[in-house]
Simulated scan of single mutants.
Amino acid sequence: MKEQKQKHKKTEKEKSFAVKNKWKVAFLALLGIIVGLVGFFFLRATQQREVIQYDTQPIVQREGEPVLSINSDKEQINALIDFYLQNYQKDSDVEYHFQLENQAMLTGDFKVLGAPITFYLYFDPYVTDDGNVQLQADSLSIGTLDLPVKQVMKMIEKSFKFPKWIEFNPDEETVLVRLDQFRMENGLFVKAEKINLVDDDIQVSLYLPQDKEK
């Protein structure tokens, strides 16, 4: 009888030990999957698959007096931006939006592991001495993810189609709007004079192309 009881106790202990081992293995497997997914996402989010190089064009100096000076506001500029981007992105599979509020805001969607993630990247705009516009990244909102602005800008640069006169510099966390490289259909140049988003005061000048100035 004693031997049977001892054998029964050993069997119960062995069963209990086996159950604990199964739970331990399951827990470790689940932990491994979670760590693997986190590592995979971080690698995909921070990896730069290719180096994107743009041929930086020399600054086009706009000489002489402007043919027209325009005072505008954010609502009018946003309408122009929306019209331009709708036409520019009509054949693109992914879209982004850019608008002026108290800051400049670039927004769009990434797909990470098949799930869309919306980002909001905020910039402070500055007019450069040559009449272009530099956007200095100020803050980033991308759901609950905590990613550096530099890496997100690299992802944006690779994921979306931008005009040739838009120059990204993720290392400096800036975007340069090369208005000196932008042409209207009639050939007019655009030069930024002032951007004050808080007071809603935006001023630009239009210049004739050089061959028509003579």
Rank of each mutant, 00 (worst) to 15 (best):
E65G: 03
L85D: 05
L80S: 10
E14F: 09
K194T: 14
F83E: 13
E101P: 00
A79T: 11
E157Q: 15
M184C: 04
I77T: 14
S159V: 01
Q210F: 02
M1F: 04
E173D: 07
I34P: 00
K191T: 11
E65R: 07
K111C: 06
I70A: 03
P209F: 10
H8M: 15
I70T: 08
K158N: 03
D124W: 03
L68I: 10
V177C: 06
L28I: 12
D200F: 01
K24D: 06
V190K: 05
Q89H: 05
A26E: 12
K164T: 13
E65L: 05
K154A: 06
Y54A: 05
T118V: 09
P170V: 05
L145D: 00
E50H: 10
F168W: 05
Q53M: 04
S16P: 01
L145V: 00
F41A: 05
K212N: 08
S141R: 08
N196W: 08
K191P: 00
Y122G: 04
G131Y: 08
M105N: 04
K158T: 02
Q151Y: 13
V94F: 07
F162K: 07
G114T: 08
S141C: 03
Q181Y: 07
M1H: 07
P148I: 01
D201R: 11
K5R: 13
D211H: 02
L28D: 02
W23S: 10
P125C: 13
N196L: 04
